[in-house]
């Protein structure tokens, strides 16, 4: 019965936005180069022809202005989708996101809702110049008032963008840019689960790997390698960095007794720090080994010729698997 199509993650986000714009004429798209060009990654390609320049338009190159005007539009009753062109360009908008967008519902004691989605292509692995490969999600997960999510596959991309647009709260939507062209089956009729639920993508009994976004594929590769060595790895896509579905991770760890958390961002004061601390509380009597974190290093994102050394890969995950199994 299901209506399945094969789409890349980029096309799936495009289809999700298109559906949301068709369903609700208050949904607007704007940002740098999103209109005629369709964005530098072509995620919004074709929307201008269908919806016209009152629904999708290019903004000046002014990130604080993009987010600040998105807030004003939300106050007027619109549901803006603002694109930040690259992860490393989000910082000029930091005040408008952290001090305004995130806090206005609380400041107004609920009189104002902020149904704003900020789309951010993030992460490395594309050989880019500086400021085009960063993973700033922890800044925003640390900020009360924001919801922070990231899809890892086309089906989630299609549904999570629509769920984000429907949310009455601001959603930071992190798009794994090196996986934009990764294709997958999309069920156009049936949403999988809500955008803040974790999902187990591969069942296993020996070690749990929890991750999100671009690293999900890497974790699945590691699990495949481990299986050849007789090690059963359970892979969890947490999908949401605020809130985090700790219950789902804890259930898995109670079974495996071992947890590795991985992401591209540096591990110091990161999403994995939080998961390690929480799982230590929730699963203290079940853990057979300390929670191991595998991430980028705590250095500025390196020049492209070094990024293979920076980014965690399946081998680095296997090294961690060996370590947790040694306890």
């Amino acid at each position: 019965m299901s209506n399945m199509v094969e789409l890349s993650i980029a096309k799936a986000i495009n289809a999700g936005i298109r559906k949301a714009m068709q369903e609700n004429d208050k949904v607007l798209v704007f940002g740098e180069d999103v209109a005629r060009l369709g964005g530098v990654f072509r995620v919004t390609e074709g929307l201008l022809d269908e919806f016209g320049e009152k629904r999708i338009f290019n903004s000046p190159i002014a990130e604080s202005g993009i987010v600040g005007t998105a807030i004003g539009l939300a106050m007027r009753g619109f549901r803006p989708i603002a694109e930040i062109q690259f992860d490393g360009f989000i910082y000029p908008a930091f005040d408008q996101i952290v001090s305004q967008l995130a806090k206005l519902t609380n400041r107004s004691e609920g009189f104002l809702q902020m149904p704003v989605v900020i789309r951010v292509p993030y992460g490395g692995g594309i050989g880019a110049v500086e400021h085009h490969s960063e993973s700033p999600e922890a800044y925003f997960a640390h900020t009360a008032g924001l919801r922070v999510i990231s899809p890892s596959n086309a089906n989630d991309a299609y549904w999570m963008i629509q769920q984000a647009i429907k949310s009455p709260d601001p959603v930071m939507f992190f798009e794994p840019k090196r996986r934009y062209w990764q294709k997958g089956q999309v069920d156009l009729d049936q949403a999988p689960i809500d955008m803040h639920s974790a999902v187990t993508l591969r069942a296993g009994s020996d070690v749990t790997i929890a991750t999100y976004g671009p690293m999900v594929v890497t974790a699945l590769q590691a699990a495949e390698i481990a299986a050849q060595e007789g090690i059963n790895i359970e892979v969890i896509d947490i999908r949401s960095m605020s809130p985090i579905d700790f219950g789902h991770i804890a259930e898995s760890v109670k079974k495996t007794g071992r947890l590795i958390v991985t992401h591209e961002a540096g591990t110091f004061v990161s999403i994995s720090s939080e998961i390690a601390a929480r799982i230590a509380e929730l699963c203290f009597y079940y853990l057979e080994a300390p929670v191991i974190r595998v991430g980028g290093f705590d250095v500025p994102y390196p020049a492209a010729k070094l990024e293979e050394l920076y980014l965690p890969d399946a081998d680095r995950l296997m090294e961690a698997v060996d370590r947790v199994l040694a306890y």
């Binding site: 009152k54 202005g65 005007t69 004003g72 939300a74 007027r76 001090s99 305004q100």
Partner: peptide, 18 residues
């Protein structure tokens, strides 16, 4: 935070145009 409200006003006014 100084000046932040000017962008909210402008976004609101853009909405009036739309």
């Amino acid at each position: 935070v100084l000046g932040t409200q000017a962008l909210h006003a402008t976004g609101y006014a853009m909405g009036l145009n739309f």
